[in-house]
Design a binder for these strands. Structure first.
Lengths: 190, 190
DNA sequence: CGAGCACTTGATCTATGTCAACGGTAGTGG
DNA sequence: CCACTACCGTTGACATAGATCAAGTGCTCG
């Protein structure tokens, strides 16, 4: 197994907070840059073979730059996102913070894997639950992005979203500056 | 976001090395126990909804026990495995070691996600590549386990394995004490 | 007002699921 | 050593969820 060395001294990341809106790109694979903690929103990570993973509020993105200097994945926002530079605290690379990030990453992987198995409707619903705020408001990414994540086709996603709409699970809800076909209220099934 | 505290003081894990053979279970979700580093082999992790993830040589398994005291997933061996207790070193929870584990976990997630998308044959081949040693020798897990990981059915796996065998990609190879239908040599396609 | 997307919808096709029967192998108990 | 059982794997016939192909429609923005 390779031994890694830090590409930079383990100092606090002094970059500024960052805000992304749905669709914006944070970085591309191979770019130089720093690591972030995702405070709010959902990011999509892509590798050379397409969709690679999701990052959700609390996750650390791009931590590999501290080891290799460059990002392994491209990252773009599926919803509006808020990011803060990482490492953040004083004993920033403290074992405990990293340990919970590691546990969280493994938990996350299981959730995403679940989005790629089972019936098409359930996969889409699973993703919607990840994207929905606690108030039930959801702004869906483009159909094609949902398709990439769930390993379905965008026509299938379109049919499923419409079907959920007709079933009353998704209620269309106009939000300023958002495609009319994308903002909904998710009514959790009883 | 929740704040975690360590369930145990961050001391070196003094448990002994452990060896598993194909099929053995390391622990069940909810059990108390310690964390391990997987030195050799491939483990399957299962959550409440079934297959959750794979762990591959170098990965840390069960690190959440340091936070919660119990395992989140059940773990069982897909191939013969060798485990060593973790944390291992002196400044064991050192940032750098954890950081590379975190980067590795994210990389791993992407690999496993790739096993659940695209054509059935490619998914199975992807898994075989993960399982094959550098010498090309592979001992496949039962068809049902392959099916769980790739989100296919065991009949489909059976057909695909046979098809790869007929195509000369997998060459049957008797190994003592292993089901005759499971040990092969993987001949990488040019 | 027109161009370019993203989405919708229908018709058809196909990869994979499902169901069912059967064969081999390992283990167990007589 | 020989039933007998319990898995696991194989194979065929058939069903279907979702893919694919092909028009449309309707936002959004210049």
């Amino acid at each position: 197994m390779a031994l890694f060395t830090l590409a930079r001294p383990p100092q606090t990341n002094t970059a500024k907070r960052r805000q992304l809106s749905c669709g914006d790109q944070l970085h591309q694979a191979g770019d130089e840059g720093l690591a972030w903690r995702l405070q709010r929103g959902v990011l999509r990570l892509d590798g050379p073979q397409g969709f690679a993973s999701l990052a959700i509020a609390g996750d650390i993105v791009g931590c590999e730059t501290l080891l290799f200097g460059v990002y392994t994945f491209s990252a773009s926002a599926l919803t509006d996102c808020q990011l803060s530079p990482w490492p953040e605290g004083d004993p920033a690379l403290s074992g405990e913070s990293l340990l919970s990030s590691l546990a969280r990453a493994q938990q996350r992987a299981a959730e995403i894997i679940a989005l790629r198995g089972g019936q098409a409707v359930d996969r889409v619903l699973g993703l919607i639950r990840l994207l929905a705020g606690t108030d039930g408001g959801v702004v869906l990414p483009p159909r094609q992005a949902i398709a990439d994540i769930t390993d379905l086709r965008f026509e299938t996603i379109s049919r499923i979203v419409k079907q959920l709409e007709r079933a009353g699970v998704l209620v269309p809800e106009r939000v300023a500056g958002v495609h009319a076909t994308r903002s909904f209220r998710y009514v959790a099934g009883q």
